[in-house]
Amino acid sequence: MTIGLEHYLFVSALLFCVGLFGVVLRHNLLVIYMSLELMLNAANLALVAFSRFNNNLDGQVMVFFIITVAAAEVAVGLALIVALYRKRQSAHVEDLASMKL
């Protein structure tokens, strides 16, 4: 049995939904952030699979850019979380419900 494009897309869709489940369910800001990374990785997998099966290298270039931007995003996001933690002494979303610092 050969593995086709739809197999990879299934894995990618399931991985995306697992990440979404984490974002909806968990209350810890850091774990929510990790779930976001899972969702980005699911998109990467779909792009690489499309790129291989459609004989087009553009998908891989796009994944390269996504990885770079995700690294920058993680750095800024974690700095924000640390700054927020200094103000509120908590990384729990229910403690961070008001907009006023």
């Binding site: 990879y8 790129s51 291989r52 390269f64 995700a70 690294a71 993680v74 750095a75 974690l78």
Partner: peptide, 25 residues
């Protein structure tokens, strides 16, 4: 999927750099 360079980058950037940052925080 024969994306060897991206596999290496995935390990280096994600498992190496990003996760170390997460663990630090």
């Amino acid at each position: 999927l024969h994306a060897f360079f991206l596999a290496a980058v995935q390990i280096l950037v994600y498992a190496g750099a990003v996760m170390v940052l997460f663990l630090f925080v």
